[in-house]
Amino acid sequence: MLSQLRKVLAASALSFVVATAAHAADKHKVAFVPQLIGIPYFNAMEAGGNRAAKDLGVDFVYSGPVDTNPVDQLQIVQNLIDQGVEAVSVSVLDASSIAPVVESAKAKGIKLFTSDSDAPDSGRAVYVAQATDEGLGTTIIDELVKRVGEDATIGIVSGEATASNLNAWIGFMQKEAAAKYPKLKLLAPQFAGGTAERAAQISGDLMAANPDIKAIIAVASSTCPGVAQAIETAGKIGSVIGTGYCSPNTARSYLKSGAFGFTVLWDPEQLGYLTVWAGKQLIDGKSFEAENKIAGLDKPATYDAAKGILLLGPPAVFTKDNVDKFNF
């Protein structure tokens, strides 16, 4: 019985192994490691990466953790380095996601760089940015003030408390509010983790706690559905505006129902493209120009040599009027 079991197991393991024996081409390899897989945002980046890989003639590897767990992410990065993937880009959970492997990557001549979420001072080769953290934080506050006035109460619902890029955006929101709109009341950020259920629960509680609340910002894309739903369920469409960094596909029905007034995001597909392009440049040993015209992108990408940031461009604002023009 056991021997049969072992035979079956061995056979299945073998077939599984053969089935996955993929192409062994000699093309250059560029990898991207997201913060976690299975969310639309990073899927769009993957799609962009694949498009770029086709255009530029490189292999693109997309692999990330199933939970926002730094050790899992580090393990994936380490394995890509061990495999000898020439350029590895990471959307870091925080600097510790790559700090232990920066040296070994350098020793092997592997280009390790960040994309989407940065680890400054880690020794990364470049940071491919969708927009500056500052731009993201200020845009959402400025756009909100246009709609709710300078003396409104605004709630913030984020995802994981440990996501350093989300926390950076919140920091710039608070800075912008303090500097430009002293009467604006920005409530302390609340953290909902990754499920729509918790985001809705917390948004509902926030609205109950602050009857004068005028807007709720969904910082993590995973909190967008929950925030919108809480506003709809509470019957506050019109009196509370939802917003956040949500992709048009996720936010479309909420923008149309009026639960969301607008959302702010860049095109993650383009960011994925730019990431792979940057990886190819690094492998080829080419440097970045101050302004880089790239065939597969709508707009040229600017490079800030002092900070080592390659910038996609300013974020876009989606409203119910323009949301149908986008599909990501």
């Binding site: 730094p70 580090l74 925080d94 510790s96 700090a99 232990p100």
Partner: peptide, 16 residues
Amino acid sequence: VSLAWLGSGRPNIGQN
């Protein structure tokens, strides 16, 4: 070990 290896203390390092 996590401190000495990652170089920082993450409040959710023990997740899962």
